[in-house]
Each structure stands twice: as structure tokens, then as C-alpha cells.
Amino acid sequence: MKRAGFTTAWLPILLLVPQLIIIAVFFYWPAAHAIQSSFYLQDPFGFGSTFVGWENYTHLFSNSEYLRIAGFTVIFTILVTFLSLGLALLLAVKADKVIRGAHSYRTLLMWVYAVAPPVAGFIGLIMFDQSWGPLTEFAQMLGWDFTLGVTYFDTATAMVVVSVWKQVPVNFIFFLSGLQSIPKSVREAALIDNRSASGRFWDVTFPLLAPTAFFLLIINITYSLFDTFGVVDTLVKGEPGNNPMTLVYKVYVDGFRGNDLGGSSAQSVILMVLVLALTVFQFRMVERRIHYT
């Protein structure tokens, strides 16, 4: 906090009130409500509800469908996170090296940041169209009979491809700005010590990028868990059927389509705990992290 400050008593309260009211009404109240209703079983016709304790939770963990979706979400998250981080790092390193056209490459590689996830999903529908989608034809050239929306594995592949396409730009922007903030003196010193370019990358550049990469890791996990909702929803055309879906999509399907408020709330609470754990983990790691600069 700043030492020098104003001492007017009413003004800061007046300034804080709008934010606090919005947060109370649209954050704390719904969050508390989700936790509360996760312990109740809703009557299917909306007449009251009964307290069932942990039943909604135990029911979830013995539900094979829920566990299958959780498993898919984990694999999906790992694939999207590492593929998009890897691709973005490669592109950022190259974009940092080239001199000619650096600005154009940067623009061409980052514009997709502004594309909404469902629009990206729509583009995926076109690219993977059953009869003439360019990527379907490409898969067929490789002998892979790609059927989006029919085969579980193929739909999952399309989800990963579209989500990676959408996420590479964010990672690219962060990696590039991380690379550009490495001091020139450090690079020159490394150049004298180590003649091999890949050796320099792994021994000097990569460790310097590690804080950025770690931060991005959390961002990407959160993205794969939550922001891919739009991608999933458009790719399955709102009809999950036997297609893969993520945990957030399941919350939506159960709560809105199935009217299973208790079960859906219990799923929300599980996700809340997951996000909280991730954030706490992130803060602790950041505290412990050695900063090189």
C-alpha cells in the first residue's frame, strides 16, 4: 500500500461499493448457492428439494459415465496444453530470430487470438465436413476415414486440433515477449560460451523462459478446462450423443438439459475445488521460483 494517501472516509467506500455489490450479487451468492444445492436432491418437477448430504458427490464418483468424461478431460487438457505450448514456443523462437518480415509474421500468427471459441468450432465443422472438408480429405489421403460427430476418436481429434489452433496465438505472444525481454548481453555471453544453437537454447534461453512457460501452463490448463466450451458445443452441434465432452460441458448438459440441479452443482463444486487447487499451486510455485532477471 502507498504510504501517502488521502484520508477522506466516505469517498473510498463510495468507490468500492459498485464493485462489491456486483461481486456479492453475481459471484458470492451464486457460488454459495452452488455449494448449498450440491447437498440437495432437486425434485424433477421443481417442487422443493431434500437434503441428501454427500450423496450427489458419491453418486458422481461411482458413475462410470462421469469418470469417463473426467478421463477424457484430463487427456484433452494434456494434449491441448502441450501441443499448443510446443508449437507456440517453436514459432516464437523462429519469429524472434528472423529479421525480415518479423512484424508480418507476428501479425499472421496472433490474429486468431480474437476468434471466439464457438466460431473456431464452426470453422472446424467446415474444415472437417463429412463430404468435402479439406482436412477430412487430407485424412483420407493418409488412409484415415475421418467421420466427425460419428466416431468418438475422430470427434476428439477435431476438438484437439481446433482448440490448439485457437490457443497457439496466446502462447506465442507470451513466449515472444519473454524472448524479447532476454537482455542482449546475456545472449552475447552465451554465444561466446556455446557455439551450438540448440545447446544455447536449452542451457540459456529455455531456463530464462521457464517462469513464462510455467505461467502459461496454468493459463492453458484453465483454457482447456473452461474456455473450450464453445469449441465442444459447436463441434458436437449441441447434441453430445456418444461424442466426447469435457467436464464443464457436462455441468451444462446435466443442469440445463437434464434439470439435475443437485448433481450439476456438485460437479460445479468439484471444478471450483480443482481451480482453487491449481491457483494455490501456482502461487506457491511462483513464490518459490528463482527469478533470473
Binding site: 453475481f26 459471484f27 484453465t222 451444462y252 471450483m272 481451480v275
Partner: peptide, 18 residues
Amino acid sequence: TTLLLPLEVRILPSYEVV
């Protein structure tokens, strides 16, 4: 604390409030 929980995890109760 609001930074910790995205809208997606409390979507249903938020809908009810609105």
C-alpha cells in the same frame, strides 16, 4: 477471490440469480 473462479463453474446459480 473472484479471480479464482471463472463464470463457467457457477453458471447455473448465476443464471438463477439473473
